[in-house]
Amino acid sequence: MSVLMGADDVRRAIARIAHEIVERDGDPTRIALVGIRSRGDVLATRLRAAILANEGVQLPLGILDITLYRDDLTRVASAPIVRTTEIGFPVDDRIVVLVDDVLFTGRTIRAAMDALVDYGRPKAIRLAVLVDRGHRELPIRADHVGKNVPTQPRDDVRVHLTEVDGRDEVEIVRVEVPA
């Protein structure tokens, strides 16, 4: 197991992404943040606080649970728990920034986009992630990335955030593949 990002790295990455999100579109009043459970919501909350501090604008914040949109529900042994989605603002004509902790196969993001468009027609959907570990299985890329990490498909990237895990840290558990 090795540490990919310490607390300072996580803090700096979030600060930078907060600037990038606003810089990209110029007008922060058109942007909304939607975090994907169960760590994207924490990151989205931090991004909102950072943008409020930088720009004085409080962005709408939503939380998305993608369970009912997963493409593997017929393959799982036991029903994954569905958590409540909370999107308390119209997404129509907004630039919605999806926020997640790790971008891997892209399947979660595909599910999140399908879920989001059931709430309306955003002007655009963008993607911000703390870690991009590669190995996409769908044509999806992130607009804002905290850190790109080369991994093996079977490696385990774990994001810990203070609000749920008591500390800020990203670590990787490498799986040795016998030669």
């Binding site: 369970t67 009912l68 949109y69 529900l73 409540t84 989605t85 399908d114 879920a115 059931d118 709430y119």
Partner: peptide
């Protein structure tokens, strides 16, 4: 919450 959405349908089943 699903039943309160503009589109009350999810693809789960």
């Amino acid at each position: 919450e699903v039943l309160a959405r503009p589109i009350r349908r999810t693809p789960a089943l």
